[in-house]
Write a protein that binds this DNA or RNA. Sequence first.
DNA 1: GAAGTCCAAGAAATCGATTTCGTCAAGAGT
DNA 2: ACTCTTGACGAAATCGATTTCTTGGACTTC
Lengths: 330, 330
Amino acid sequence: MAGAKVTIYQVAARAGVSAATVSRVMNGARVSPESERLVRAAAEDLAFTPNRTARRLRRQYSEVIALIIPDIENPFFTALARGVENRARAGGYSVVLCNTDDDPARESTYIDIALAEHMAGVILAPADDGSDVSRLIARQRPVVAVDRSLNRPGIDAVTVDNRAGGLSAAESLFDAGFTRVACITGPSSVETAQLRMEGWQQASRKRHGRGDEELLRYADYRVDGGRAAMAELLALDEPPDAAVVANNLMAAGALDALHDAGLTPPGFGLAVFGDLPYASFERQGIRVVDLPARDLGEAAAGLLLERIAGDDGPARTVILRTDQISRGKK
Amino acid sequence: MAGAKVTIYQVAARAGVSAATVSRVMNGARVSPESERLVRAAAEDLAFTPNRTARRLRRQYSEVIALIIPDIENPFFTALARGVENRARAGGYSVVLCNTDDDPARESTYIDIALAEHMAGVILAPADDGSDVSRLIARQRPVVAVDRSLNRPGIDAVTVDNRAGGLSAAESLFDAGFTRVACITGPSSVETAQLRMEGWQQASRKRHGRGDEELLRYADYRVDGGRAAMAELLALDEPPDAAVVANNLMAAGALDALHDAGLTPPGFGLAVFGDLPYASFERQGIRVVDLPARDLGEAAAGLLLERIAGDDGPARTVILRTDQISRGKK
DNA sequence: GAAGTCCAAGAAATCGATTTCGTCAAGAGT
DNA sequence: ACTCTTGACGAAATCGATTTCTTGGACTTC
């Protein structure tokens, strides 16, 4: 009975009514009980599913939102995606996940696709500073930035309090008795990297009067970058005895470098932004600034759905607090 | 200039030709050089992007494929997704990722969406035995199963040689001198779980004449299940001194249980199917059966694209070999 | 009983791009 | 010079669902 595509006209014919009536039944408009019964029966028999493409063309929007992230293999972003999906599903929306590999060109392509596909809105974890969302704005498509904010005013954003996180990470290391606390952060063009570093800097200044600039390294938020940066730090004349690492992947690399040098936490103090689910940072005696990735996703999706529903109030920036540093179960 | 939606008619008007001609230019049909120039200029000026929804409605297909996976937070599947995406992009297709959380109902919903959205094809990592792809078949949409095969004939599938992997995992432990090698596998309804277990069984029989059935545990492919199963095994009167664990997440759990009992690899032999990228199984002295997740994805996407292109030869099953067991760098 | 309200429901327009069909003109062949 | 191709290209049909716009009948109301 299912077979090929069933159109609304076939349902109409079978029910003995017009296509308009079928549409009304499917969309909950006023229809006589009798017609409704007939249509539902016919639709059931024929296993009718409205053609979404046609509907979308007519309605000029779809119930799909795009989530654009820089790295699908980073657990932080998959957890975030999970959060977005949960919230979106609850609101009746589907999510399509777009992976840019930090490539602005791919990001741009996906934005075009989102537009051309009439997606209801876009949640963007920007690849870098220069993300161009002007096309979305021009077409009045809701956009929410997540994790990093876009340095363009008027756009909703959901982030964590990165500076506070950096501050408390560094202080927890100082408090534990470490004296030379280094910092491995991300690219200086990336907002989160900058803020996390500033938190560390603030803590250092409070302790030492002035910053420990020689203990600061900018890397690339990737495993290899973290490894290289840590190796470099360890090769200093006066190497650090602890470090704040600005993301999970670089921490994995840094840990490699430490192992190579025969060092391990908690002997060498390590505080990291964001967990790696199965790397058991905590069990290894590493301090973790808990990034609420899933909550970020849920909050972002929540904002977006409100915008889609027509809210056109002023742009909001939601800043989630990073959880307390956990000291590791061990 | 960009502003709201630009339609093909506006481009046509500006170029002084008909919409048909614009369409022909955009799709590479025969057009005079002069018209082509005019149209391209007009399209450029207006920043015209064809409305994909309209195109899709007319053409009855889109250049989007669906990838349906059971767990987006499992690195195995994200690596697989990466492979699919690479291959699909190369072929000019976009991928939308659908996460089912192992819920057959959600899987079913996504299959409906794929149909209703006229997606070009579906790559499915089945949640369990009962995945119902009949609707896709009925509508002649190409489907490729990946990781697990569907027990429905006539469907392309890409898997690894699970039995061989199980066999070599177990043998490598026996060869290393362990004598009581347990097996923690997945749900008995899941093909990969069954085959991996059979490989282990075969190795055990070869050594001991008959299987070590008391050392076999079925779990759920999740962290907690692995932890519980290992705890159970360790509580036996004659506990094992090694184990083959059928997936990465259960291994993380099993490792927890071992730690709780004061045991660690390589003292306790552990061989695992599939790495956890940042858990550094190998560095912990765990043997890893390398599952070529990305290759699986690429192969599956390759098959699917061939089908989409019209290949209607008999169904193929591609079995990738699991790589040699790596003994751990350390 | 005539005029006014309401409402279910069909006919037809609409969304935007593609594609079929047919026209017209320029060049080929005899 | 005249028919036959061939190629460019516009007009109009098409994809399937939604959304006016209209119509006709039932029900009020005075």
